[in-house]
Design a protein around this nucleic acid. Structure first.
Lengths: 128, 128
DNA sequence: TAAACATATGAACAACTATTCATATAAATT
DNA sequence: AATTTATATGAATAGTTGTTCATATGTTTA
């Protein structure tokens, strides 16, 4: 069912004419791609990192080590409510952990990866 | 203006009573945080990674090396239009590059970082 | 040059999300 | 016990985003 348009080059047959696709490429891609569930989780993870407020919270926690909600609100210039809502999301994603001391709740990064990912992202946006 | 509630431990004064914050912590965070512009770009970058379709495209390109739009559509089971729209976003973010050969447009990853970031993200979601 | 094809794109719509506002909970202070 | 303080959370809203549909662009083939 596959019609290769050109075979000048050996591996260049993945052309897509009349809705027919070269099966080798398709197979290769399908085999090496993580499961649907993993891809879901991965997208979900990046989605959580993809918000300015949350990025700022993560950077603040990295620099301070540990901060209470009120401090974060002050530093970021956002309402306590907005910060609390975002902290809940970060908590559920297990990107931050917390510790209660009386009324005050201290948040900190939960994971070595978080800074690592921020760094890789940073070096990407800083390149050119 | 700052009232430290407790000084049992030296560095634990970042408590936030009556809207007053310990200035040392605030200063430290403010000095070490990337510029507003960088944080914007960073959030924007992660936002782009935070979509299942786009993640799948990136994985497919990584595995195949190079793919035309129609191939991608077929592998991901999405319409050509949906894929084209997402490719435009990936293009604008410089995550993919393209090469035209007649009618066909071949896309590939533009950046070493892309796979690196996918990997770091993957190892995060695979941990527990 | 007309038809077929691969890709791109604008508009519309539905789904999602971040913030605000009001209020709840829970701990500390008076 | 009542008040103050720190944080959490539900509901409402405004803004954003991904997909679909229709169509445009540009290339190849007949």
């Amino acid at each position: 069912m596959v019609k290769s348009r050109k075979s000048k080059e050996k591996e260049k047959e993945e052309v897509c004419q009349t809705i027919e696709i070269h099966p080798d490429i398709v197979k290769k891609v399908q085999e090496n791609t993580p499961s649907e569930e993993s891809l879901n989780k991965l997208a979900e993870f990046f989605k959580i990192m993809g918000d300015q407020t949350r990025i700022k919270i993560l950077y603040a926690l990295f620099n301070a080590g540990e901060m209470c909600v009120c401090d974060i609100s002050y530093v970021l210039g956002k309402t306590q409510s907005a910060i609390s809502h975002q902290l809940r999301i970060l908590r559920q994603a297990k990107l931050v952990k917390f510790r209660k001391e009386g009324k005050v709740v201290f948040y900190s990064l939960n994971d070595e990866h978080v800074k690592e990912i921020l760094d890789v992202g940073y070096s990407h946006i800083k390149e050119e």
